[in-house]
Amino acid sequence: MNKSEENNFKIKTINLYVDDLRDCPKGYEIARTVEEAIKYMTSYKINILSLDHDLGMDENGNLRKSGYDLVKIICEKSLRANKIYLHTDNPVGRDNMYYTLLGAKKHKIIDEDIEIYNYPITPNKYSDKL
């Protein structure tokens, strides 16, 4: 395969916003569930990943998998985003996601060059927090 043919098969790079309620920021694709997020993460290169923790309930009233569940899957499957931001308002969930990601970097479970931020990349119109 020559370079021209290779370029035709490059995987598209996207920004991914994982949240069950918030509006999707401009320039992002939205995943409302962990399952949707995994489909994006295994089909595209992810530049920026922005995570909520609490992802609501399913149609039967059961809690859906959380952003923390997604973080564990990212670690288990060595999925990648260049930058990961945590936009959740759940302080315990934020800490669980943040410190799990930092530990995974330290122990080389995920790529060491992934940037991890313990705050949102976009303003949250549903709270006073940035």
Rank of each mutant, 00 (worst) to 15 (best):
N62C: 12
Y28I: 05
Y68N: 03
I116Q: 02
T42K: 15
N124M: 10
F9L: 15
E5Y: 09
I46G: 08
V34N: 00
H87M: 09
D20E: 03
N62S: 10
E115W: 00
K72V: 06
H53C: 05
Y40N: 08
A81G: 12
E115C: 02
Y119C: 07
L55G: 00
I14W: 05
T100L: 03
E29A: 10
V71S: 03
K26F: 10
E59Y: 11
G27E: 05
K106D: 06
T122E: 14
T33A: 04
D58E: 07
K3V: 12
L79A: 01
G103L: 08
M1L: 13
N118E: 11
K72E: 14
V34K: 00
L86S: 07
A31G: 07
Y28W: 11
N2P: 06
N96S: 10
K65G: 02
K106Y: 09
K3E: 13
D111Y: 14
H107I: 05
S43N: 15
L55S: 02
H53G: 05
Y126P: 00
I48R: 12
K39Q: 12
T42G: 04
I121Q: 12
Y117C: 04
I38V: 15
L49M: 10
D128K: 14
A81E: 04
M41F: 04
Y117A: 00
P120T: 04
L86Y: 01
R22M: 10
K45T: 13
A31H: 04
L21D: 13
Y40G: 06
N15T: 06
A104D: 02
K65F: 10
G56F: 04
E6M: 09
N60G: 07
I73T: 10
D20S: 02
I30V: 11
K129E: 15
C24R: 08
A37T: 04
A81W: 09
Y28P: 08
Y99P: 02
Y40L: 09
S50V: 11
G93C: 00
I46V: 15
L79Q: 02
N47E: 14
N124T: 06
N2H: 09
